[in-house]
């Protein structure tokens, strides 16, 4: 074999092995474990904080409201739908008080008159006309609303 070719092959081999060494250090350990991505990213995504807790934890303490709610039309609605995420509240209930929205606009998010809302799914009221001086919650208990 000619000398030049031998040299060329040696140079090529050095380059290829150098590439493989550099690649070894640059590719993360769990890459290609399941595919063209880092398998550890699954764990990263899974480790996020759960903020909206299981609704069963609400009824564990608030039994009175729970028993009121089960007979009303709001029985299938999660407490946190109105009161917001409860993860801090369950850790220290006295310090982290949840919101109690009472504005007319809040009720209106679901119950204001809108052609896009199906009548058989949700009861609607024209909140710009209906008893405008009072808050909705003064007449309708949100935990057991009556028409």
């Amino acid at each position: 074999m000619p000398k030049q070719l031998t040299r060329l092959i040696i140079v090529f081999l050095i380059f290829i092995s150098l590439f493989l060494v550099v690649r070894h250090f640059l590719v993360p350990e769990s890459f290609y474990k399941f595919g063209h991505y880092r398998a550890d990213a699954l764990k990263d995504n899974e480790d996020h904080q759960v903020k909206y807790i299981d609704a069963a934890m609400c009824s564990a303490c608030h039994t009175d409201i729970d028993s009121l709610k089960v007979s009303g039309p709001h029985k299938n609605i999660n407490c946190q739908t109105c009161h917001g995420p409860g993860y801090l509240h369950v850790e220290d209930p006295s310090k982290n008080v949840l919101i109690k929205p009472t504005e007319r606009a809040f009720c209106g998010k679901c119950h204001s008159l809108n052609a896009a809302r199906a009548c058989n799914i949700i009861k609607q009221q024209d909140i710009a006309q209906h008893n405008i001086d009072n808050k909705c919650v003064e007449c309708h208990n949100p935990h057991q609303p009556q028409p």
Binding site: L42, N45, E46, D47, H48, Q49, V50, K51, Y52, D54, A55, H74, N76, I77, N78, Q80, T81, C110, I121, I122
Partner: peptide, 23 residues
Amino acid sequence: CTLCYHRINKGLQPTCVEVCPTG
């Protein structure tokens, strides 16, 4: 959206499913 990957693997529903008032 991660389909709430941190919730579904703990046996919980995704947040949007959990809070939807009409299911």
